[in-house]
């Protein structure tokens, strides 16, 4: 804003074409706009009534929204059609300063500012180092106090030798429970209502056949009476793989449609998942309950740096 602008006074008469409204019939336009404003006022007041008497929620939105919309339309139309149509102009001055101002500015910063630092290098260095040290150290409480370090936690689940498989109500699964083609989400007994049980230990139990089923070499005892258990955590991003298509014998992850072949150890044969779902080795105990032989043989869920 330079001093020249103070001198740019200008006068206009009301008949100046720039001061004329855009509308060809301003009085009619004014009446129409007044009408929309009145509708807006009525609707806004109606919102008050609707709120007072607790009408349905959609009436709140229609009255409030419609009212403000009409009022806004009125004000906008006033500005567009009834106010001076212009066009008006103003000068756009160079933002840059004059060469002399630049010279003074540059000199002030470099010579009075940075130059002073250069003359006392030791002090400048120590001050800088101090600020740097403070900056680094001040991040420590901000970051480290947030939570525990991962350590071995990503690898641990609640499944151990002999753990009973229970459903979401805590009822232990018996070998006679599922028919062939059935699926149930199971948790370690006692952990079905805990965060860890639901988030990490969640497992799907599928009955593929009536007889012992081997998914891969080395897993001959893992599928007693046709019961197969896989970790429910998708190895892509950890969504629960709850979608089972029993004729295709595929587990499909609902998030990004990775497809796991249940018959061969949940090998992903489509989609972005990189690794098969870990299989939980099972056995049927003397009373017929389905239990885990052991925990999972690898960390469950998506990959991370420390996973070997």
């Amino acid at each position: 804003m330079s001093d020249d602008d103070l001198g740019s006074f200008s006068t206009a008469s009301p008949d100046d074409p720039h001061m004329q409204p855009l509308a060809r019939h301003p009085e009619r336009a004014e009446q129409l706009i007044a009408l929309t404003m009145v509708i807006g006022i009525v609707l806004v007041v109606l919102f008050g009534v609707a709120y007072w008497y607790n009408w349905k929620p959609w009436t709140f939105g229609v009255t409030l929204g419609g009212g403000i919309l009409f009022l806004g339309f009125g004000i906008t139309a006033w500005g567009k059609y009834l106010m001076p149509k212009g066009p008006f102009v103003e000068e756009r001055h160079d933002l840059r300063g004059t060469d002399e101002e630049r010279d003074l500015f540059g000199a002030a910063v470099t010579q009075r500012g940075a130059g002073i630092l250069g003359r006392r290098k030791v002090l400048a260095g120590t001050a800088g180092l101090g600020l740097l040290a403070f900056g680094v150290v001040s991040i420590f409480p901000l970051l480290r106090s947030l939570g525990p370090l991962p350590a071995l936690t990503p690898t641990r689940t609640g499944w151990k030798r002999g753990t009973y498989l229970v459903d979401s109500t805590g009822r232990a699964i018996h070998v006679d429970d599922l028919a062939v083609g059935g699926i149930v989400t199971v948790y370690p007994m006692g952990l079905q209502d805990t965060d860890q049980g639901q988030a990490t230990d969640q497992t799907v139990l599928i009955r593929l056949t009536d007889t012992n089923y081997t998914t891969r070499p080395g897993r001959e005892t893992w599928g007693p009476a046709g019961y197969i258990a896989y970790s429910k955590l998708c190895t892509h991003l950890g969504c629960p793989v709850g979608l089972y298509e029993q004729q295709l014998e595929q587990l499909v992850c609902p998030c990004h449609q990775s497809m796991f072949d249940v018959t061969n150890g949940a090998e992903p044969d489509f989609g972005p998942a990189p690794r098969p779902l870990p299989q939980l080795p099972l056995y049927v105990d003397g009373r017929g309950f389905v239990r885990a032989q052991n925990g999972f043989d690898q960390p469950v869920g998506p990959g991370y740096w420390e996973r070997s």
Binding site: G61, G65, G72
Partner: peptide, 13 residues
Amino acid sequence: FMVAGAIALLGGL
């Protein structure tokens, strides 16, 4: 006002 009104209409309907 028109933007707010449109948002309120959507919010209600």
